[in-house]
């Protein structure tokens, strides 16, 4: 027992201050919101896999989530705080949001970085957000993956099992647009083709801070810069 306490004291408090205080600074090589200037046309964050050899220049800005699919298409170097707040969602889920995760062909990278939100570093439960074991206990779904042929029915059934009113969050390029697997024989083009999506979180996979930022903005816990 003493050893446990001693280790606990040594480990200290590791929880990020985010969203309070200064924004956390990510390493220089981190590929966040891309700069559109110099690109031939608009940049679609919902399709991008944020690969280093795409020719794009990236900032280290991790705030990229959007409420509408169209907002992910960047025409200029605007900053994406595009979270037009839905008051109904804020009123209903602002203090307590229970989510069920469905992996529909995800490669387990998005899933792993959603899971990380439950570690002491991000401590998701301090915001009243929790991942639950059954869709019947949930207020919404978090979908990852392009929605494979073999997962389509399971996704639709899980969606039906969530009581109304409910929300859907698409995490990662695959769930938003099909990503690398768009228009391929065994996969769909993301969750939006089957169920209405309320929040898009781009990345391959998104950094945990991108996901957390998106969730907090969705429920009105984080606004403005």
């Amino acid at each position: 027992m003493l050893k446990i306490l001693l280790t606990r004291i040594k480990q200290g408090c590791r929880t990020l201050a985010f969203p309070k205080g200064q924004l956390p600074v990510l390493p220089a090589r981190y590929r966040g919101r891309p700069l559109v200037a110099g690109q031939r046309g608009p940049v679609d964050l919902g399709v991008s896999t944020f690969t280093p050899d795409s020719g794009m220049v990236h900032t280290t800005d991790f705030c990229m989530a959007a409420r509408r699919r169209a907002d992910l298409v960047l025409a200029d170097n605007e900053k994406l705080l595009a979270l037009e707040v839905n008051q109904a969602i804020v009123k209903m889920f602002g203090r307590s949001l229970k989510l069920r995760q469905v992996s529909a062909g995800g490669c387990n990278a998005c899933e792993a970085d959603i899971n990380v939100l439950n570690t002491p570093v991000f401590d998701l439960s301090r915001f009243g957000i929790q991942f639950v074991a059954s869709p019947r206990h949930a207020d919404g779904l978090v979908v990852t993956g392009p929605v494979t042929h073999n997962m389509r029915t399971a996704l639709l059934k899980t969606y039906e099992a969530v009581p109304d009113p409910k929300i859907v969050i698409a995490v990662g390029a695959c769930a938003i647009s099909g990503g690398l697997f768009a228009d391929t024989p065994q996969s769909g083009n993301g969750a939006g083709a089957y169920i209405p999506v309320d929040l898009y979180i781009p990345g391959c996979p998104p950094h945990p801070l991108t996901i957390l930022d998106g969730l907090l903005r969705l429920i009105g816990r984080l606004r403005g810069e």
Binding site: Q101, V102, S103, G106, N115, F131, M151, A154, T158
Partner: peptide, 9 residues
């Protein structure tokens, strides 16, 4: 296939 955690199906 949908499990009680953040894992694959």
């Amino acid at each position: 296939p949908v499990h009680a955690g953040i894992i694959e199906p």
